[in-house]
Design a protein around this nucleic acid. Structure first.
Lengths: 124, 124
DNA sequence: TAAGTGTACTAAGTCAATTAATACACTTAG
DNA sequence: CTAAGTGTATTAATTGACTTAGTACACTTA
């Protein structure tokens, strides 16, 4: 069951999206497995089916699942693809920041030392 | 004269803020120099003085100028301080991205090669 | 065919943001 | 001291976006 707090100020569809995302990432639902239907979740949580559908739609946009009209919503078969996509997005943002730092005359060595420092902390 | 487009969807105060920011960065107004007054800009552009004041307030928050009640709004004397602040903000964002990349198992070498590549392009 | 699925369209309600009207407080030239 | 100029605070109206729900539609499959 996904935790819902209507008074939190956070939109219901976001709470549902994040709850499902967590479950998917934790492996509660296996790749390719069908997620609970829009209507069953709606009745379980006592809210409108469209709100669930919105959450599904966002998850699909993020690549975590795919919906088929008349059949249901299924967990993405290959979660590695998603991780790869996120990696690439992060690398693009890195490019942006680096350009900005270069324009601000931050020397290359400063940036590199930041990296060395961070990667030293863990075991990666 | 600052370009204004009321139909653009971008708030007037943001357009004014960005226009003034550009002029300051380009040196149209010298450090310490008094900017046009809230009311003169308001009548020039045909909008409410409060909208101009909002733009000024934001510029002050960003450190590009400072307002004195009864006297006027003046360009910050030391623009280098501002550049330094922005540099630090960019470095903080760099930290965020690096953490994310590390979590996504992006090897240190990939990140460093990105840096080498970018800094090779220009003359910095 | 019937029951289940996702989806599209519309509308109501809420809430935040923008903008303006107005009055206030301060500084300074005269 | 006063008047004209400055920025600022408060309030309100309006607009617009967002969330959510109601309802109907289109598709799939047992």
């Amino acid at each position: 069951m996904i935790p819902i707090n209507p008074k939190s100020g956070i939109p219901l569809w976001e709470q549902i999206r994040d709850g499902l995302k967590n479950q998917i990432m934790l492996g509660v639902w296996s790749p390719g497995e069908q997620l609970p239907s829009v209507r069953s979740l709606a009745t379980d949580l006592g809210i409108n089916p469209n709100t669930i559908a919105r959450a599904f739609s966002e998850l699909e946009r993020e690549g975590l699942c795919y919906s088929v009209a008349g059949r249901g919503c299924f967990v993405e078969d290959n979660l590695e693809v998603i991780k790869m996509k996120r990696k690439n997005e992060a690398l693009e943002r890195l490019d942006e920041i680096l350009k900005e730092l270069k324009n601000a005359d931050v020397p290359k060595e400063t940036v590199i030392s930041k990296i060395e420092e961070l990667y030293k902390e863990g075991e990666n």
